[in-house]
Each structure stands twice: as structure tokens, then as C-alpha cells.
């Protein structure tokens, strides 16, 4: 079977800083990682391949340096990696991103065989929209299975797949028909430690590099900034409250004295809360 996994290279969010004066994000020197949510899909893909045979192809649309993440995915055991990189994609919002990625998937399908499953992450940690997966599914006419917590069964002859999906009020057990687009819940599958052999293979492997022309994007005006209906009009720092936090200070710096002063302040501001707490404590 053919499994495609969409991964995105993102800056490691823990290490991002904002310039205190200009309010711009300081990306220089910030290490990049594979979007953590994408690894749950990758692991699931590798398990399905190990069980049913076939190939796992990882793919991304991004700058040339995104090749690092693809190579990393190869060390986990992916069979092949494809990078779609081109300046026409700069500034893509989610609609333009799903357009580029769905064309990438079509081209990869022509080259290696159409995918039975496309995995996406639940969301990214930078864009954080959870829109690209559904976007790809719509554009390619794949059944959309988001927030999947487990794949219980799959039958390649009937082309059926049985999944558990995390709903808002419980778990749905769903049966669908391949091809599908799946996003995996976090925690569903811990990514494996790749083998030595995979690490060696990854170091030598050629990452396939395509651009808009080689992929055959039908309409470049649907890509990048031009193809993005959403526009960021303003980036700004949140304003402080009109009145700053009232700071509780005590001459006696012992925890007991500070706790007392703080509770007094809380109850002064929220007398109703105090009454309710007292009533609760008294067992009413």
C-alpha cells in the first residue's frame, strides 16, 4: 500500500523570543523540529506499512532547509521523502497550502502509486489551525477522518478502514472506505527510535525536490500570498489592563503572613465568593 505523510518543519516553540521593542519574532538561531503532532501520523503510517507492506512517503511544502525534517523522518524509517519548494508558495495561508499540497500528492501518486491513506498532523504548533488536513481531503475527495485515536482494522481487499475518533462528547467508531485522510490524536502512537540501518540509509538518501513547474501546478495564481484569501492586517502586543495588578506586599515576608494578606485581598475583591466558600464549607 502507499501511505503519504504530510509533515511540516516548525521552529521549536519553546525557544522563540519576541523582540521587546519591534514586536517581531526573532527566528534567528531558533532550532527547527518536525511538527510534533505529525509524528503520531508518521508512526501510525510506519506500523501499517510494517503490517501490510508497501511504502511510506513523507512530504512537505516549505523552504529548502525543510529538507532537514524530511531526512529526520527517513531516520525513523520512512521509505522516501519529497520536498516541494518554490518562491511562488511564499506567504501561503491554509487554503493556498492545501492547494499546493494536494497537487504535490497528485504528482507523487502518479509517480509512485496513488495513496491509500494520507496522514496529516492534528494541527501545527506554529500555524495551529488544524485546517490543512481537511483542506487536502476536500480537494482530493478523500474521506476525512480527523482526531483519530486508533486504527482498529484495515482490509486492503475490501478497501475498508475501521477507526476510533475522538468526538466532543465521546468516541465514534467509524467505518470508511480507502482512500482516506487521517489526522491522529496526540499520544496515540509514540514515534519509534529509528534503527541504525535507517539512520545510515537516511544519511545517503536523496530527498526528491520538486517545484511548482515539476509538480505541474495548474494555476499559480492560487498559490502563495496571491492565492490566500486571509490577510494579516496587524500584529500587535496585547495591552496591559488599564489598572495594573494590585501588588500585595507585607512587611513580614513569611509565607504565613503573605498568605493571610493575599486571602484578605481576594475576599475584599470578591465578597460573594467568600460567602459562598464559607457556606460550602459549612455544608450548606
Amino acid at each position: 500500500m502507499q501511505i503519504f505523510v504530510c509533515i511540516k518543519q516548525v521552529p521549536d516553540s519553546g525557544q522563540i523570543r519576541v523582540h521587546p521593542v519591534t514586536n517581531t519574532i526573532m527566528r534567528q538561531g531558533v532550532p527547527t523540529i518536525i511538527n510534533p503532532y505529525d509524528l503520531f501520523g508518521l508512526e501510525q503510517a510506519l506500523r501499517l506499512r510494517d503490517r501490510f507492506g508497501g511504502e511510506v512517503t513523507v512530504m512537505t511544502m516549505g523552504p529548502p532547509m525543510a529538507v532537514d525534517s524530511l531526512r529526520k523522518a527517513l531516520t525513523y524509517g520512512a521509505d522516501r521523502a519529497v520536498l516541494l519548494t518554490d518562491r511562488v508558495f511564499a506567504g501561503s495561508d491554509t487554503l493556498a497550502t492545501s492547494y499546493a499540497l494536494s497537487n504535490l500528492i497528485l504528482k507523487a501518486g502518479e509517480t509512485w502509486g496513488a495513496p491509500d491513506i494520507v496522514f496529516c498532523g492534528k494541527q501545527t504548533i506554529d500555524g495551529d489551525t488544524a485546517q490543512v488536513g481537511p483542506g487536502i481531503a476536500r480537494r482530493l475527495g478523500l474521506s476525512q477522518l480527523t482526531y483519530v485515536s486508533g486504527i482498529d482494522d484495515m482490509d486492503l481487499t475490501d478497501r475498508q478502514i475501521l477507526v476510533r475518533r475522538r468526538g466532543d462528547h465521546g468516541v465514534q467508531v467509524l467505518r470508511s472506505q480507502l482512500p482516506v485522510m487521517v489526522t491522529m490524536m496526540e499520544g496515540s502512537n509514540e514515534i519509534r527510535r529509528g534503527t541504525q540501518a535507517d539512520a545510515l540509509r537516511a544519511a545517503r538518501a536523496e530527498v526528491v525536490k520538486w517545484n511548482a513547474a515539476t509538480v505541474g501546478i495548474p494555476d499559480v495564481s492560487l498559490c502563495g500570498l496571491r492565492g490566500s484569501p486571509t490577510v494579516v492586517k496587524k500584529v500587535f502586543a496585547p495591552t496591559a489592563r488599564e489598572e495594573k495588578a494590585e501588588m500585595v506586599a507585607t512587611t513580614d515576608q513569611s509565607p504565613v503572613a503573605m498568605a493571610d494578606a493575599l486571602i484578605n485581598q481576594i475576599f475584599t475583591r470578591q465578597p460573594a465568593l467568600q460567602d459562598d466558600l464559607l457556606r460550602q464549607a459549612a455544608g450548606h
Partner: peptide
Amino acid sequence: TFGGSLLCTIHTL
């Protein structure tokens, strides 16, 4: 938005 201390305003023009 990304980064931990900024907000952004987005329009669909």
C-alpha cells in the same frame, strides 16, 4: 500568533 506574546488581526478581503 506564533511566538508567545503577540496577537494578529486577520481579514478575509
